[in-house]
Structure formats: C-alpha cells, structure tokens
Design a protein around this nucleic acid. Sequence first.
DNA 1: TACCAGGATATGG
DNA 2: CCATATCATGGT
Length: 299
Amino acid sequence: MPYEPTLTLATPEDYRFSANLGYLMRSPKECLHLIRDGRLYKALPLDGTPVLEIGADDDNRLLVAFADDRGVPSEDVRAASLAYIREWLDLDTDLEPFYRLAADDPILAAAASMHKGLRLIGIPDLFEAMAWGILGQQINLAFAYTLKARLVEAYGTPVSCAGDTCWTFPQPEVIAGLEVKDLLPLKLTVKKCEYLIHAAELIAGGALSKGRLQELGYREAEKALVRIRGIGPWTANYVLMRCLRMKDAFPIDDVGLHHALRHVTGSDAKPSREEILRLSAGWRGWESYATFYLWRLLY
DNA sequence: TACCAGGATATGG
DNA sequence: CCATATCATGGT
C-alpha cells in the first residue's frame, strides 16, 4: 500500500532496514513502537508526540511519513523528528571499522556477516533507558517486556497509531511522584520499585542528566551511574550503550552475552570474566556493537 | 515441574 | 575482599 512520505532520509551504504526491523520485532510485547507490513511506527517523545511511519525504498533511503491525522507538522517538529530518527537508529556512525575487525574475529565474524546492516538501536531517553535496565535485572527478557508494558500502560501516554495504540514512556516526573505501593501491583520487586522511583527523582530533579553524563566520558560516567542505588555495573553499561551510545560500553555481566559466547565457542559452561576479556580483547572501542550483534544470535 | 532469567545489595566470613 | 543469601514473578 503506497503512502506519501513527507520526508526522506539517506542512510549509510551498509544500512539494511530489514536487519534493523528484525531487532525491533524481537518481542511481540513491545509497546513503544509497532511494525506492520514492513513499516515501523512510533510515537516520538517530542512536543506534540508526532507519530511516525517509517519505511524504506529500493535505494536504501528511509521514507518518513507522519501517520496521525493532524496533517504535516511544523518545520521545527519535522526537523526534531529527523534528528530523533538519526539518533534512535544510529544513522551517523561509520561501521566500516567494526566490520573490518569483526571479519577477522572468531567470535564476531558469523554474527557480523549474518546481521550485516544492523545498527545499535538506541533508547534516546535517559529515564527510559535506566528504567528498562532496572526492570530487566535478573528476570528473563519476556517477563521484562511484560513488566514494561504494565508500567507504560499504567503511567505512560497512549497515542493513536496505525489503527492501534502506540505509547510514550512515562515521564520521570510522574514516576517520581509515586510510592512503592503504587508500583507493587505491577509485580515488580520492592527494590525495583525503589530503584525506579529514585532514578526518576534524580532525573526529574535535575541531579542527573544525559548531557552531564555525556560530558564525563565512559569511565567517569560509569562510575557516576554505579553510585546510584540500584544501578550496578551491568545496568550502568547497558545505559551507556543504549542511551549515551558510548561504543566502548560493555555489559560484561550480561547473561545474554554469556549465552551468545557459549553458542559461538561451543562451550557448555558460562565463560569466566577473564575468558570474556580475552575473547573481547580485539573489540577495543566497539564492545557495545559487538555485544549488540552477539545478542542477535539468541533470538 | 523445576529451573532460571539482559543483577544488585546486604550480610557474614 | 570474596562468597552466599535474598529478592520474587513468570517464561519455557
């Protein structure tokens, strides 16, 4: 079904829209975007919450339409939407160095080849990234999606989208105003309720911001995050990877990474920290991308 | 049905 | 500093 794209967006030579949709479709419980007939829909967390419909043409360009019935938005909103897409889908990173190192890497070669054209899908909003990390601690991914959907449907904002509902993630100001007892019915642990509310308070109060973390650089930003209650090394690196887009962020404690490494090496035991450091020695500066690609081997 | 899941923290040695 | 218990529901 043809549609009239309002905007077109050039992508890098090695970009493949379908490879990225593959990642975005990994959970049927995802509530922050939806995919229909090869097109991606999302309500952007920007002023006016524009709803985007994103497809691709044969020349590997992204075709962007505004999928709500409010007509074409203002120039400002269009520009902000394009900027959001570039960041979310990571259209401005040159992946050539990553593919070059992956081609000769016994761990990465297969994943890089199989999913070539995939980019690290981001979580531009800091609170969403932290909340998603906290929710996902020590539970399987399917359950994490269930919890996220409950949180979003309780405290987020519904937006009509392609005859369905897209949601925007709850604002930190909203979650900061809650008490543990408000979140318990979602079946989070008491600690996760506390972590979530505390993170929301830090961001809503201005004590923590994406911009400030960005200025710190990887090591210092990691330290700053780990000092926050409920944010350990895994969550800190997850946030730096998905939100701050630090390419050397590396969630080395990630169970999914461990499974992927076992899958590639054929080992039946969880790799030790030393083993992972040895296997990843050649990934310097691309640890986040390496992890993201390895995750794709799991589902 | 058991087992375990994209961990973090508190506690005890 | 390292090992262990605890959280706690739900997916497979």
